[in-house]
Every structure is written in structure tokens, then in C-alpha cells.
Write a protein that binds this DNA or RNA. Structure first.
Length: 789
DNA sequence: ACGGCTGATACT
DNA sequence: TAGTATCAG
């Protein structure tokens, strides 16, 4: 048996990993082609990390018990009120578990098993469960746990921590004696594989902690455990919540361990315990193997425990489950998991949904509309909160529905999901979501029987709206501009710093309005994409296929999304505090001008647009969008794109508009909330024709760095993409000289949309503005880079 | 077709 | 890409 190999000498050890030559498995198994989403293997970053997984104990119950302390100590469960059999349990306290109460029992059943049980309802808002209180409670916890190490919010009540560095530091500085209580808590840890030779459990643990001749990796884990114990105590003290934790060398093992001793305990997984732990572990207990993949392993390969997996060679597993999943499985069997702790404290999407099971299924458009509106209201509320609290903006709205066919046709066709650019404001979200539903419905009924439409032979059994592609907007000290200006800057942005790169990429290439072409000029990410060498992404901002999506083919959507309907600038939105669109743009309505610019831009982009296809796509864009239709995105993300164009194609943009754009950008970067809200929309409006066209140089805007070739930054891959870095380079050297507020022609201000106009004007007397982040106390401050000038 | 609701991720 | 699926709790 393989276990004997483990016990003694270890052939090959890589980060908690024992590499063993597996036996070839001869049995034939059917092909594997069903599962779409499969786990993927990642390379290991460090050879002995310290990873913790922290899991709140029956979280919703704890939240309710804190709200209502008389519940403490009593058997308690949280139910989602359904008025059907007492509602469904979604969390069960430990006292109640003793009576055999289980999740996903009905309230009535629970009462039967445990008559004393206290059933607490999930809050209801707009006719549906509202999890806000739990989300907020989760955030409280995250804010504490993120004090140490890199922190990833894995779900509403789970967190991963990468404590490698902290633990190493502690080890190096020889564990300064911590508070007694912490040590005590730490000594309550469970250490897997620890022999209790005679002495009591806690004594053994203590001994293990103090073992001086231990493996360095064990010592690191011990440090990690101390830190986690401390954190858990802090969480308890500050939130009254208890949690359990696992401490191990990777995510998988940490997660496994955190569930082993609950509640309010922690479990350590020393390297030496791994093989024994996994050997007998039922395969379905492993994360990712609880579903179809796990079933297949059992049914097709007779693998019941993780240990059973060891006998299969990597090739064999790859052959059956594909390259990625194959090696992932092979690694898992050996306790290897290279997955990184992400460093993300906020969710990547928000959603609001409801099911309408059985009889409740929605059969009329008006009932569907009603519910979509309710869901959108909640979603919008959460988006606004996210914007205000975290300065993040979501860019995609998606509607999911599930439907039931009443009449005939076994065909259980899926109701298609649809998405579109997200515009802020309740009414807009509602309108767009409803349109998405109609688009989906047409497709749904259209394909099978056109007749169904008349007879309304569908019923909606589930609806949900969600917002995704959420990107952090720049904050005062850490603007995107600065980020581009100095990529090595250690990121200090409040929450999302390490994501900003990729998120910007997504943001910039989001299918908004406005030309995306300019953005390439300053997008360093392009080189990254290039490195990744994904054919499909060789030009992220262009859809290489050049075809419109289904939605866009629909005339309704084309008009709705391709251009802003000025009448939508309505009162409703304003009363909501969310106004739409601004984009500083210079609208080149003159065709001649536009085409001249286009030509120059083509020259400019020549090396960038690699394929003919892309060039055609570019031409197409040129026709559909007026060339100088700059979306707000540019203003937000990269004013330098404008500067480059104007530098190389002088005479296109007058300097006053440029300065104004830059100024607004600065306000944005400062976190001015009114400006932020404008930016929350992909719509656009235009400046009128430039009044007086001047060349850029004329006003001495740039003495250097405007040249097309001046790229001193080494590109990721020194290929045709080097020009892409131009904008960045330009920006880094801060081509913009510093402007004084009085240099901005006040008359240009009038061309801004009224709302933002007021805001910008007001900011000219910043001392009177409470709305602006303190640092930028004067406009001069914005425009004088600390570096030079 | 009652385990509801929410979120992440991989693949195409 | 947008859309589909799977998984988890």
C-alpha cells in the first residue's frame, strides 16, 4: 500500500506534497465529455505557504442571536419564510443540531424533532428574502481578518488568509511572547497526526508548538496558528461571532481542516499528516468533487477515497478528464493545490433573484414585470451602496430566468440569459432588465413553436438580475492614472488594489459606447494579453469576429444602447441622486475632419491592428460611432489617450476642452461623489464643435513625450505592440504640464452637462466644498504633480 | 416541480 | 464576448 511509503522516507516533497509513482490503471472507461466547468491546476508559488481558512459557525444563526441575545443558548435556526410547511431552514445552530435538526429541513419538521427550537425568519424586503444583514455582518468579519496577511473573501461567511509572510516574520523574530489568552486559544488547536503519548491532548499540542527541532514548515504552521488564534479572538471580541479555522500549507487542506472541528476551534494540518488524512477521505468531501465530477470518479474509476486516486497516472487522468482537470486531480490526490489566495475583500458581482416554484410560476408578462422591477430595485440599492462605500461601478447587467413549459413538448429548453451594459438608476435598470427578459422570451418561444406566443404557454419559475464587471474607481492617492504612471508602486488602495490591473482591462474593453480604439493607445494590459497568447483575446477591445451580438441586432436594443436618448435624462433619475452620463467628448460631426483623424489613427494603430479582420472592424467602428465620441471611460481611465491623439494629430481637439477633461478626471480621481455618479453610466453626451482649434503644442502643453515612438518602458513582449505603451509612457512622464484653474476657459464649462457643470464650477472654490476629498484642497494642487514643476 | 438565494469560476 | 454549466453553502 502507498501508505507505507509515506510513513518512512518521502521520495519527493513539494509543498505538502508527496509524489508517488502511481500504478497504471488498465481498465477502460467511457469518454468524458459532459462536465463543462471543471477544476483547473495551478502551479505552486511558494514551497511552503501558510494558508488559513476561516469559517463562521452557523453564521446566520449567530447574526440573529447577536441581534436578539435572548436566543443565545437556545436551539435556534434561521428559516426562509415560505408559509409552506414552516419555511426552509438555511442555518441551524449547534444546540439545535444536537436534536437532529438539519439544514434544508422544513420549519415544521424541525419543530417536530426539537419542539423548543426558535425559528427566526430571514428579513423580507420587496416580497423576497433580503440577506443584507448577513452580508454586512460578513463584511465586519472580513475587515478584522484582513488585518493580517492577504485576505480573500470566499463567500458570505468564509475567508482565506495567506499568512506566509506574517508567519515567516514571526518565526524570524522568534515568537515574541503573545498574550496568555492567545497562547491558550492556540493550544486548543487540533493538530492532525499528533501522537498523544500518554500526555493529555492539550499538553501534546503545547509540546508540538514548542518543539524546537521541528521541521521549519511545522514551525511556520505553528506561527500561523498563533496568528489565527489571535484573529479569532479579535473577531469574537469585536463582533461576538465565533468561527472555526484550518491552518495548512494550501487552500484545499486549510478548507478541509476548518470543517473538522467545529464550532469555535481550529485545526492544523502538518505536512506529515497529509497522506494519512487524504488516504481515507471520501472523494466527495473534497471541494469541487461534491458533484458530477466526484460521481464520475466513483462510478467510472471506482475511486471512493482520495487515496484511491493515487493509483492513476497523470496521463490517465488527463486522458479522461482533460489536461487541466487531469493534473488537478493528480495533484489533489497528493495534497497539492497551487491555488493562490486572491486578495479580494469585496464580491465580484451582485445579484437579486427569486424562485416561483410550482403553482406560483409567473404566467403573465405583467407579473414578470412586477417581479423584475422588485428585483431591480434591490439590485440598484446594492449598487448604489457599493458605489458610495467602495467607489466601485458595475458595468454589466444580466437577467437570468428559468421557465417551465406548461403545455406539451418534453423539450425542457433553457431560458436564455441575456445581458447588456448597465446604466445606473432604478428606472433604467428596470427598463433594461425587462427588455432583456423580452429578448430572452422571444428566443425561448421563437425557436420551438411560434404559436406558443399567442397561447402564453410558458411559466416563469425563476428570475434573477445581477450586476457584474464591477471595477474600482480611482481614489485620491491611488488613481488609475497614478497606477499607470508607476506600475511598481505598492498598491495601497483601500480594498481592491491588486485587482486594479485586470479590472481595468475588463473595464476598458467593456462593450460600452464610445470608441474603444483610443484606449488601446495607453493600455499596457494588451501586452499581457499577448503573453497569454489566447487567440481569442489577441485584441481584447475589438470583437475579432466583428459581429453584433444577438441583442444588438435587435433594433430596440441598438437604438437603446448605442446612443443615449436625451429624454432619459429625466427627473426620476435625478431624484434618485443618480444621474447618467457624462462623457467628455468632442464630437466631430464634420465628416471630413473625422475621416482625416481616422486616417491618422489608422497610421497610428497600424502595428496594433494585427489582422485584416481587426482593421475591418476598426473601419466599421468608425462608421458607427462618430470618431470623437469619447466615452466617459476615457476621461476616467486615461486622459492621456486624448493627449496622444491631439499631439500626433494636432488641430483636432482644442486645448480648453482637453484641460477641462483633465480637470474633471482629477475630480473623479479625488473621489468627488457627484462626479463618480456621472461616471457610473456608459452613456455619453458631446461637446459641441470646438470653438477654436489650436494645436496642442501651441499652448505649450507638452514639451516632450508626445512623439509616437518615445517608449522607454520595456514592453512585455517586444513586438508590434510597443506603441500600445505610448500612452502610458506619456503619462508617466507626466506630459501634462500643470495648469492653473484660471487657465481653464470658463466658457468651456458651459458645455458640460448642467449637473456636472455645477459640480465642477463649485470645485473651483474647494475650501467651500465638503464633498471633495481633503487632500486636493485647491485646484492648483490637482494640476501640480508633486514630482516636477 | 419546492432547498432559496447568492456567488464564483471554467469553458466555448 | 456573452452565455451556459457546475459547484458550494
Amino acid at each position: 500500500m502507498f501508505s507505507s511509503i509515506f510513513q518512512n522516507s518521502i521520495p519527493n516533497v513539494v509543498e505538502g506534497v508527496v509524489v508517488v509513482e502511481g500504478k497504471e490503471e488498465e481498465r477502460r472507461v467511457e469518454d468524458w465529455g459532459e462536465i463543462e466547468k471543471m477544476p483547473v491546476a495551478r502551479p505552486e508559488s511558494s514551497d511552503s505557504r501558510v494558508i488559513a481558512h476561516i469559517d463562521m459557525d452557523c453564521f446566520y444563526v449567530q447574526v440573529e442571536q447577536r441581534k436578539q441575545p435572548t436566543l443565545r443558548g437556545h436551539p435556534t435556526a434561521v428559516v426562509q419564510y415560505n408559509s409552506w410547511k414552516g419555511g426552509g431552514l438555511i442555518a441551524v445552530g449547534y444546540e439545535a443540531r444536537k436534536y437532529g435538526v438539519k439544514r434544508s429541513m422544513r420549519g415544521d419538521e424541525a419543530k417536530k424533532v426539537c419542539p423548543d427550537i426558535q425559528l427566526v425568519q430571514v428579513p423580507v424586503a420587496r416580497g423576497k428574502a433580503d440577506l443584507t444583514v448577513y452580508r454586512d455582518a460578513g463584511s465586519e468579519v472580513v475587515s478584522i481578518l484582513s488585518r493580517k496577511g492577504r485576505c480573500e473573501r470566499a463567500s458570505i461567511d468564509e475567508v482565506y488568509l495567506d499568512l506566509t509572510e506574517v508567519a515567516e516574520t514571526m518565526l524570524a523574530e522568534n515568537p515574541p511572547e503573545r498574550l496568555e489568552t492567545i497562547c491558550e486559544e492556540a493550544f486548543k488547536s487540533h493538530v492532525l497526526g499528533l501522537h498523544l503519548d500518554g500526555s493529555s491532548n492539550q499538553d501534546s499540542v503545547k509540546k508540538w508548538f514548542y518543539m524546537s527541532d521541528a521541521d521549519r514548515r511545522d514551525k511556520l504552521l505553528a506561527c500561523g496558528a498563533l496568528i489565527v488564534a489571535e484573529l479569532r479572538l479579535e473577531v469574537l471580541k469585536e463582533t461576538e461571532y465565533t468561527c472555526s479555522a484550518g491552518i495548512a500549507h494550501n487552500k484545499m487542506l486549510a478548507k478541509l481542516a476548518s470543517g473538522m472541528n467545529k464550532p469555535a476551534q481550529q485545526t492544523i494540518v502538518p505536512l506529515s499528516s497529509v497522506s494519512t488524512l487524504l488516504e481515507s477521505l471520501p472523494i466527495k468531501k473534497m471541494k469541487q468533487l461534491g458533484g458530477k465530477l466526484g460521481n464520475s470518479l466513483q462510478a467510472d474509476l471506482c475511486v471512493d477515497t482520495v487515496g484511491d486516486l493515487l493509483q492513476f497516472s497523470e496521463d490517465k487522468l488527463q486522458e479522461r478528464y482533460g489536461i487541466n482537470t487531469g493534473t488537478w486531480l493528480w495533484n489533489i490526490a497528493r495534497g497539492i493545490c497551487g491555488e493562490e489566495v486572491e486578495g479580494r475583500l469585496l464580491p465580484k458581482s451582485h445579484g437579486s433573484g427569486k424562485t416561483f416554484p410550482g403553482r406560483q410560476a409567473l404566467k403573465t408578462i405583467s407579473s414578470v414585470q412586477k417581479w423584475i422591477y422588485e428585483l431591480c430595485e434591490e439590485l440598484s440599492e446594492r449598487l448604489v451602496r457599493d458605489l458610495e462605500q467602495n467607489k466601485r461601478i458595475a458595468h454589466t447587467l444580466t437577467l437570468h430566468a428559468s421557465a417551465h413549459k406548461l403545455n406539451d413538448s418534453e423539450s425542457l429548453k433553457k431560458f436564455p440569459s441575456k445581458s447588456c451594459p448597465l446604466r445606473y438608476g432604478i428606472a433604467k435598470i428596470q427598463e433594461d432588465a425587462l427588455n432583456l427578459f423580452h429578448a430572452g422570451l422571444r428566443e425561448y418561444i421563437g425557436i420551438h413553436h411560434a404559436k406558443m406566443k399567442q397561447h402564453n404557454e410558458w411559466a416563469i419559475t425563476g428570475l434573477s438580475v445581477s450586476a457584474s464587471k464591477i471595477v474600482a474607481t480611482p481614489s485620491g492617492t491611488h488613481s488609475i492614472t497614478k497606477y499607470f504612471g508607476n506600475k511598481n508602486q505598492t498598491s495601497s488602495s483601500a480594498l481592491e488594489s491588486n485587482d486594479i490591473h485586470t479590472q481595468d482591462a475588463a473595464y476598458l474593453s467593456s462593450s460600452g459606447i464610445g470608441s474603444s480604439v483610443e484606449l488601446h493607445l495607453s493600455e499596457p494590459q494588451i501586452a499581457n494579453y499577448e503573453d497569454e497568447a489566447s487567440d481569442k483575446h489577441d485584441m481584447p477591445c475589438f470583437n475579432p469576429d466583428g459581429d453584433e451580438t444577438e441583442v444588438c441586432k435587435d433594433s430596440v436594443f441598438t437604438t437603446k444602447f448605442a446612443e443615449q436618448d436625451p429624454t432619459l435624462f429625466g427627473m426620476k433619475e435625478q431624484s434618485n441622486g443618480i444621474t447618467e452620463e457624462i462623457s467628455l467628448s468632442c464630437s466631430g460631426s464634420e465628416k471630413g475632419l473625422a475621416s482625416k483623424v481616422t486616417q491618422s489613427k489608422m497610421d497610428f494603430l497600424g502595428p496594433v491592428l494585427k489582422s485584416e479582420k481587426q482593421k475591418r472592424k476598426f473601419e466599421k467602428e468608425k462608421v458607427t460611432h462618430s470618431l470623437f465620441h469619447y466615452g466617459l471611460k476615457i476621461v476616467i481611465c486615461d486622459i492621456s489617450a486624448l493627449s496622444i491623439l491631439s499631439g500626433s494629430i494636432s488641430c483636432l481637439i482644442d486645448i480648453d476642452h482637453l484641460m477641462l477633461a483633465k480637470y474633471v478626471h482629477q475630480l473623479f480621481c479625488q473621489g468627488n461623489s457627484s462626479i463618480l455618479k456621472y461616471f457610473a453610466s456608459g452613456n455619453s453626451c458631446s461637446f459641441p464643435e470646438p470653438r477654436h482649434v489650436k494645436t496642442f503644442q501651441e499652448r505649450g502643453a507638452s514639451s516632450s513625450g508626445m512623439s509616437v515612438q518615445g517608449n522607454q518602458q520595456q514592453p512585455m513582449s517586444g513586438t508590434t505592440l510597443s506603441t500600445c505603451n505610448l500612452g502610458q509612457d506619456d503619462l508617466r512622464s507626466d506630459t501634462w504640464r500643470s495648469y492653473k484653474s484660471d487657465e481653464i476657459d470658463p466658457s468651456v464649462l458651459k458645455e458640460l452637462p448642467p449637473e456636472i457643470q455645477a459640480e465642477v464650477r463649485a470645485s473651483f472654490q474647494p475650501q467651500k466644498r465638503a464633498n471633495i476629498v481633503k487632500r486636493g484642497s485647491s485646484i492648483d494642487h490637482y494640476f501640480s504633480p508633486t514630482a516636477n514643476s
